[in-house]
Write a protein that binds this DNA or RNA. Sequence first.
DNA 1: TCATCTATGAGAATGAGTCACAATTTATGT
DNA 2: ACATAAATTGTGACTCATTCTCATAGATGA
Lengths: 146, 146
Amino acid sequence: MLDFKTALETLRNYLKEHEMRFTTERMIILEEIFNFPPHFDAEKLFIHIRSKYNHISRATVYRALELFDKIGIIKKLNLGGGVAQYELKMDLPHHDHLICVVCGKVIEFVDDTIERLQQEIAEKHGMEIINHQLQIYGRCKEHRKQ
Amino acid sequence: MLDFKTALETLRNYLKEHEMRFTTERMIILEEIFNFPPHFDAEKLFIHIRSKYNHISRATVYRALELFDKIGIIKKLNLGGGVAQYELKMDLPHHDHLICVVCGKVIEFVDDTIERLQQEIAEKHGMEIINHQLQIYGRCKEHRKQ
DNA sequence: TCATCTATGAGAATGAGTCACAATTTATGT
DNA sequence: ACATAAATTGTGACTCATTCTCATAGATGA
């Protein structure tokens, strides 16, 4: 899933298989996600979409985000701050996030050793992993104190 | 900070240094946190406290939790689910959490290698770490599918 | 004890997210 | 293209966690 076209195809297929309707609203929302920063929250996306398509409601945006997350087109993140964040899911390996507490910038990183250790830890506790998240909060290059 | 007495002392000192009042409400709330499960949320704590001290208000509990977190007596966690979780902060090494998505059980674990790797990753990106959190969501021993 | 100024209680307000339902739109068979 | 049935949408009400407001109560230092 690297581009809008592929994502749209995925959406179409999922909808067809589940007797759901392919609507212009769902298409527009998907398209606007691709026009939007890589990490965003529902409200900002809604405002953005609303500015171009004033008939699309907040509920529809929330519903579409839930759907796209379920399908696997986007991923809902829990980065703190009391607001759900979303990112496009690009079929890349699992990654985690560095978050600047000053400017909110999000940096992604991948670390295979950490991934493996998590698996080991879960097993040691008899736990079957469904999902995991690692957030490192700090001050980025531009905002760290000297 | 291993016991109520020490925590209370910390609270007293902090309040004195900041020209704030040592109130019975703050003391009761602190005490009840020590009588409560190791991971809890504000509302549950409030209900519990309210059942014993019916004059203590929700706002006071929330305000106290914020204060205790700032002082470092407790730690506010972001385990997902739309509700802030808290835990006593015991001057133990940093630890992370395994969370059962079925029963909500929280298991703590410590892994020095992961801690070290996080430090390295942050440095590689020029980031100064303030805090970090790792959550592994899954099904615990009792609830995993066979 | 008094004066001062912080903390509290009560409930209103906020903000993210969800829900109910009437009206609309889509998919399908003809 | 048309009718039909079923899914979807927009609106606004609603929920839930948390925060705020403000009048009153209570802690602290003189």
